[in-house]
Design a binder for these strands. Structure first.
Lengths: 235, 235, 235, 235
DNA sequence: AATGAATGAGTATTCATTCAT
DNA sequence: AATGAATGAATACTCATTCAT
């Protein structure tokens, strides 16, 4: 996950910080430790980052923007394109496809999206762990985890929402649904990543099986409780 | 949640520590702060606790033993009693009741148990938060969260398992099930408590509605994915 | 050296303090430790002693008075008696005996005195160690070691000097002699006791041999460099 | 002994520590005091030394290595050179010189060595005091004083012994001799340094006289009890 | 871009001592 | 005579951060 002999000191710092923050937590990690692990002079850290907090901010920002990017890419590359060529119509929170083939194409891409999300989350589980950590504390990053939730909410500043361009106010996301989605879908996904290594140590399961479990559980859950109904309008 | 003018200094210390640990995290909380909040001389903390870690340990221990107690009480008071009077037979992980009335009685008690678990978790959400916090860090308490999981596992040292006295080796808990149960049942329950206040602040939902959501979501989930099937053997 | 089940708490405190002070030094020993080792409540120490310093003072005082007592006893029981019955005349620092028998009697008692001093020093080596310790520090007890030296000095407040009743001003103790006596006689005696256990650990010598070495070295030295010449006036 | 305005902070720390440790003892000296006396920020002490103990270790190490160096220098510069040019033969612990002149040269150098040892000991009496102090306590430095003793022992890892290249197993150091040498030669030498200032305060002797006393007493003792006999083989 | 030295405020912990009972 | 609880000041040590070069 981390090349042994990295060149860029800034990257070395970020990698060292990621490892340490995710193992011992932000507060229990000293700048000295980061410097030692990154094989970098302590003062150099302050050349690249304004303070210790900025390192954490940098890590969390990069995670957040990656997740946003993945979600937006799916919305753009899949939904928008299909909406433009008329093979998909989104209405009142439901998806109407022009043909079975269109729906199959959508489903395939949706599954690929699920896999990408799970993979990305697991690959970057150290930062995910840090994110969970910080979202449990009061402070600047407390709300980070909730921003994932916002991806599902019907708010004007939600880029996914914007992309879909759905305007109905009677969107069927109501409070209970959001609650359920957050605690039984997002939280498990994030937790699987955060507790991955510990769970593996306890269960002695292989990486392959664990990833399979994670993907299947997540997909099963998403499908069962899917808020969006898919229909084919083709006669 | 905390009486304004407590007498026992040791309790004052524990309450202050609970509040601070759950707000800022263990590592970011100073013993000075605890002393100040508990209105206690700093050295007195070391009279009652060997060190800062021991305060944390005391909090987590009391949480763990309460959860164990609740679970065992349910197993003892409900399952054992019914098993003894013959109104319930547990076999191959399934529950066979002598009558509809017996099953109804069981279901009622089960729901009461669910409610008790959810209530206890929410009432003690500060410590639950601390527990989640610490289980994300490497160290002594990392495994605490996983001990909840063990309550569901088929191991000889599991007191619940012992109580049920189920001996079949082909018990239908297999790896995927345990994984699913942990990440889609325990983790959500714990997370609802841990993120309760933050979620409330974001959603502006009343305590009543949130608790209702929590209980319903948890019960719905537990029932849907219930591992134990319930049957009535009555002709 | 220390009875296992002592009754008197004050004695238990003194013994515990002796052991700890001699092992780790006064400053590195906590009142808590003393209380624990003495199996006594910490506050009780302050019932018997004004403060920690008073424990040390008590130990050193008892050592000093014992040494004084031994020396005075020798002077009284031996020299005074012989001086009174005319079998010994002390003049200008030299000892003139009335007969060979008188001198032999004196020598025998002198050797017994040497043995008693060495034995007492070794038996109480823990306190001797403490004394050396404290005499190396600035402070109240710095001068304790030097009070041994004063036993040899020609000062009006020297009880030994008083006992001998020697009045000559040209007493042949001059500065170099006192210096030599102190550093090559008193200091070795005290050091043998202070380093006894450590030396034994290094050399693997038995208690018997070590005590024999100590006594012989000390006697040889005392005799060789004896300032007091012994004469027989008998024709 | 200490320049008023030193530049190197590390040296300032060492000098301040030396003064304080030798006055009040290691345990009674606070790091705060050292910092204040050295006019240095407290944290800087921990920049240069791992902990308080390391300061002490540094002081004792430098003393030990100096003493070793002085002794080795004498052995190398004097004995080795004479042994190589044939003017000195060492056999069975005795020294045989080719000529009176050779012996005189040796004696002169030996006396210079004595003087150097005494001078060094007195000049560095603060550290010597600390060494005595620590060798009375259990712990890391307890054995330091005994290492001086080892300089006289016939062990393969003794550098002096190696240099002399004496191989006879019947070397006349036996247990009693080592005991005597240690307690009546090394201990007095060390004690003279350790108690120098206190003795001076009591005796009101000038530095010159005290140093003269010290040197003479030491030389007299060393010569009287010299283990090595000196002979001239010249006809 | 990089570093060794330096710092003030803070950390957890221990101290000798006192008090009420 | 004895004790559990309490305390203010001090302890050794660490922190994130800065500065001069």
């Amino acid at each position: 996950m981390k090349p042994p002999n990295e060149q860029d000191p800034k990257l070395r710092i970020l990698h060292a910080a990621t490892a340490l923050f995710s193992q011992k937590g932000y507060d229990a990690t000293g700048v000295n430790e980061i410097a030692k692990k990154a094989k970098v002079n302590k003062a150099l850290i302050y050349y690249y980052f304004e303070n210790k907090e900025a390192i954490l901010g940098s890590l969390i920002d990069s995670l957040m923007s990656s997740v946003y990017a993945i979600t937006l890419a799916f919305a753009n590359d899949c939904i928008d394109v299909m909406a433009e060529d008329g093979s998909l119509v989104v209405e009142e929170g439901a998806f109407f496809f022009a043909s079975h083939k269109a729906m199959e194409g959508f489903t395939t891409k949706l599954h690929a999206y699920y896999k990408e999300v799970v993979d990305y989350t697991l690959d970057n589980r150290a930062i995910v762990r840090i994110l969970m950590f910080e979202s449990l504390k009061g402070g600047k990053h407390q709300s980070s985890l909730f921003r994932f939730m916002e991806l599902m909410e019907k708010k004007p500043d939600n880029p996914l929402y914007k992309t879909l361009g759905i305007g109905q106010q009677d969107f069927n996301y109501h409070e209970a649904t959001v609650f359920y989605e957050f605690f039984f879908s997002i939280i498990p996904l994030v937790s699987i990543a955060a507790y991955y290594d510990e769970y593996q140590a306890k269960s002695h399961l292989s990486d392959e099986r664990l990833r399979e479990f994670a993907l299947r559980s997540y997909m099963a859950h998403a499908e069962t409780n899917s808020l969006r109904k898919l229909f084919v309008t083709e006669s």
